[in-house]
């Protein structure tokens, strides 16, 4: 009995040793600024693709995921950000793969397993976080100085945004079917605050909580902002009978559009703040 157990243990030790060996051969590593010249980049995040584009390095992109506003290059589409096609990525022989923690489903797992070098952008909660990630990426792509200039430009633009005298209490809806809002754990909350508003559901724990319609109505915000124009129309039609709810009575349901808010880059952040502040200027009070 003891003999068979010890034989079994030896088998486990050998198996673990083999696993270590496998990962030491195939394991990828996170990229560091200035760690070798980079010419071929695969981006698995639309926001990171946008950042590369903004850094003037679009020609380095050899692979991108679907849906990339602003990018007009010829990079190969390597699947969606939820389900990248690893075979296609490997075939592109990238110098680096860009992944993001903010796109919650993603992680660097596949890149690690296939031994690819990767840059992993962390979660972002505000403009400073976004700029930090942007500067790291700029450093890796050898565009640190240019990145600094861009960030300074965006900071100046952000300071010029006009904030309302009275801070409106607003709810931002990422989706209406189901009702999903953005809480204080998401960078959208920071966009609302930068534009001079107060996020009604700031204190919720989840970054993007699913709300009941009742909670939205009883919160009685000054305004509701949807990301999609169609969602705004749906809310206007669906809620038209609730005349005692302030944002419905005053017709304060707006749409921000989805051109800038879903993408966490310094430029898009500033665009989003400018858009939201313009919407705030149109809020009607009694």
């Amino acid at each position: 009995m003891n003999k068979s157990i010890s034989g079994y243990n030896i088998f486990i030790v050998i198996f673990i040793a083999l696993l270590f060996l496998l990962f030491s051969v195939t394991g990828g590593s996170p990229a560091r600024p200035g760690s070798g010249s980079i010419k071929r980049v695969v981006s698995l995040s639309s926001s990171l693709t946008d950042q590369v584009n903004d850094l003037g390095a679009a020609d380095m992109l050899t692979g991108v995921t679907m849906f990339n506003p602003g990018y007009r290059g010829n990079a190969v589409v390597v699947g969606s950000y939820v389900r990248p096609d690893m075979e296609r990525i490997i075939a592109l022989r990238p110098d680096i793969v860009l992944v993001s923690d903010e796109d919650s489903i993603q992680n660097s797992g596949p890149a690690l397993y296939f031994g690819l070098r990767f840059f992993r952008s962390g979660r972002v909660f505000n403009f400073d976080d976004i700029c930090r990630g942007y500067m790291q990426l700029a450093g890796i792509l050898g565009r640190g100085e240019y990145g600094e200039q861009r960030v300074e430009l965006y900071r100046q633009r952000l300071e010029l945004v006009k904030r309302p005298l009275r801070a409106p209490r607003v709810v931002f809806l990422v989706s209406v079917k189901p009702l999903i809002t953005a809480s204080g754990s998401s960078y959208i909350n920071s966009i609302i605050e930068s534009a001079g508003g107060i996020n009604v559901f700031k204190n919720e724990k989840s970054a993007y909580p699913i709300l009941g319609l009742e909670s939205l109505l009883l919160a009685d915000p000054d305004a509701v902002i949807t990301m999609m124009e169609g969602d705004r129309d749906f809310l206007v039609t669906r809620l038209k009978d609730y005349s005692r709810v302030r944002f419905i009575r005053n017709n304060n349901i707006f749409s921000s559009g989805d051109g800038s808010i879903p993408y966490y880059t310094p430029g898009r952040y500033v665009e989003a703040v400018e858009t939201i502040s313009l919407l705030f200027a149109g809020i009607k009070y009694e």
């Binding site: 319609l213 009742e214 109505l217 009883l218 009685d220 009978d241 609730y242 005349s243 005692r244 709810v245």
Partner: peptide, 13 residues
């Protein structure tokens, strides 16, 4: 004098 809460009960719940 219909309140907001009453409206929610009547039209939603």
């Amino acid at each position: 004098d219909c309140t907001l809460r009453a409206e929610v009960v009547l039209k939603l719940r």
